[in-house]
């Protein structure tokens, strides 16, 4: 239970097309994260799945049943909102039981489900409080609890951690991962935070301007981005790009370094900052001049620039002695090179 399939989903608001034909299958018990820049349509897509908005065209199936024209109430899904959307005039217990009362569930069963969810989320002591008497993290737990008690086919989470501070976000992220492992229910999670996406997801859906750019596991997205957008979007700091020309199976990089490519014509070579290192004397390398050194302790971020290539970011392990204005040579391994053609699609 909990298979969700989207087929040719389009959504327009007036004359503005927001979602341009999305096809996606989400497996039972899978945790899929929608990620992308602001305005890419990730929240809209989630609302279409929830039934809070209707698609302009296309089909949504849950467990093989077409629910496209069904209302939110009839889809068996539960949603955790970015703002938590807790009823401010109700206690935590009333918030948790409200949906169950709507379903005319016996009181004993409601109490049992509420107690169980409260125990699972460690909010048992908060049941008599109102939302305004809770901290951000506690409210978040209650919002998740409200979804859990309904025992839904799938959970939809719309940037649930974005209102929390960094420390709490880390804690809640771990708790969400544990919760998913325990419940084994399908979850669709919207975020713009890469760390959340990478750490939580079974698969990540990268969206841009209402289109899917790539759907893959977090590590595949990182290791084999299928296009320039995904390569630049996934990974922090952003990937370095060098625009060059491939001739006779070779592409030249700044400083004379060359890479072997089975391609001819304009190409963009991408190398992640973590995959550059200080070169030995005889090694193939990119020559660059250092502008800024950020020593973070465990690693050092070097901002440099190469002639004809603009800025280059390098993340070096440890605390190498590099000063601003120094000339450095940055080496790389062939297996860490990402090459993209003139259309931004991956080569090889």
């Amino acid at each position: 239970m909990g298979r969700i399939a989207l087929e040719g989903i389009r959504k327009s608001f007036g004359t503005v097309d927001v979602i341009h034909g999305i096809d996606l299958e989400i497996g039972e018990g899978e945790l899929v994260v929608f990620v992308g820049p602001s305005g890419c349509g990730k929240s809209t897509l989630l609302r279409l799945i929830a039934g809070l908005d209707q698609p302009t065209s296309g089909k949504i199936e849950i467990d093989g049943v077409d629910v496209t024209r069904k209302g939110a109430a009839d889809r068996g899904l539960a949603m955790v909102f970015q703002s938590y959307a807790l009823y401010p005039h109700m206690t935590v217990r009333q918030n948790l039981s409200f949906g169950l009362e709507n379903a005319r569930m016996p009181k004993a069963e409601i109490d049992q489900r509420v107690e169980e969810a409260a125990r699972m989320l460690d909010i048992g002591e908060l049941l008599t409080r109102r939302p305004t008497q809770l901290s951000g993290g506690q409210r978040q737990r209650v919002a998740i609890g409200r979804a859990i008690v309904r025992n839904p086919t799938a959970f939809l989470l719309d940037e649930p951690l974005s209102n929390l501070d960094a420390e709490l976000r880390g804690t809640m992220r771990a708790e969400l991962a544990a919760l998913h492992a325990r419940l084994a229910t399908t979850m669709i999670y919207v975020t713009h935070d890469q760390i959340e996406a990478m750490t939580l997801a079974d698969r990540i859906v990268v969206l841009r301007k209402g289109r899917i750019e790539q759907v893959d596991t977090p590590l595949n997205l990182y290791n084999r981005p299928q296009n320039l957008f995904v390569a630049g979007f996934i990974g922090a700091p952003n990937m370095n790009f060098f625009v060059t020309e491939a001739k006779s199976g070779r592409a030249a990089l700044p400083g004379g370094a060359e890479v072997v490519l089975d391609h001819a014509g304009p190409v963009t070579i991408g190398i992640r900052p973590q995959h550059l290192r200080l070169a030995q004397d005889s090694e193939r390398a990119i020559a660059a001049k250092v502008h800024l050194v950020e020593a973070l302790g465990a690693e050092t971020v070097v901002h440099a620039s190469a002639e004809g290539a603009g800025s280059i970011l390098t993340v070096l392990e440890g605390q190498p002695l590099i000063e601003r204005g120094a000339e450095i040579r940055l080496a790389f391994d062939d297996e860490n090179i990402h090459a993209f053609d003139a259309d931004g699609q991956r080569i090889g």
């Binding site: 939110a72 949603m79 959307a85 807790l86 009823y87 401010p88 409200f98 949906g99 709507n102 309904r150």
Partner: peptide, 24 residues
Amino acid sequence: DLYEAAEMDATPPARVFWRITLPL
């Protein structure tokens, strides 16, 4: 958001009025 949460909770319109709109 509260109305959307109520919609997800399958709340009948009359109950939305009496339990959410009116108290708020």
